[in-house]
Simulated assay, not measured.
Amino acid sequence: MSQPVQEAGFSSAHWYGDWHDGPFVEAASREIIIAARCQTSARTARSVRGTG
């Protein structure tokens, strides 16, 4: 799942399994919470401007 996050223009992501910063455990977590940082490149800026 990290590949689509990077392809969407995010440079780094932290994965959590709950809203209290608990670790994401694939077999046990009921939620996937991703805190991601957007890349600041000209390519990303062009694609963001083209949406909406």
Rank of each mutant, 00 (worst) to 15 (best):
Q39V: 06
A35S: 09
T40L: 07
S2G: 10
A13Y: 03
E26G: 05
W15T: 07
I34G: 05
M1C: 11
A45N: 09
Q39T: 06
A28H: 04
Q3P: 02
G9I: 08
E7F: 06
G9R: 04
S11L: 05
V25H: 11
V5D: 03
R37C: 06
S29A: 14
F10E: 01
T40G: 09
H20F: 15
G50T: 10
S47D: 01
I32D: 07
A45W: 08
E26M: 05
T44M: 06
A27P: 08
T44R: 10
F10V: 06
A13N: 06
A42S: 14
Q3L: 11
Y16K: 03
S47M: 01
V5W: 11
G17K: 09
D21G: 14
G50Y: 00
Q3K: 13
W19T: 10
E26K: 12
G52D: 04
V5F: 12
V48Q: 03
W19I: 06
I33T: 12
T51W: 00
R37G: 05
I34P: 03
V48E: 02
R30H: 14
F10W: 04
E7G: 02
M1R: 14
R37Y: 01
S41H: 10
A8C: 02
S41M: 08
G50P: 01
S11K: 07
R30A: 15
E7T: 03
A27V: 05
R30I: 10
D21F: 13
G17C: 13
R37T: 15
F10C: 03
W15M: 11
S12A: 14
S12V: 14
V25S: 12
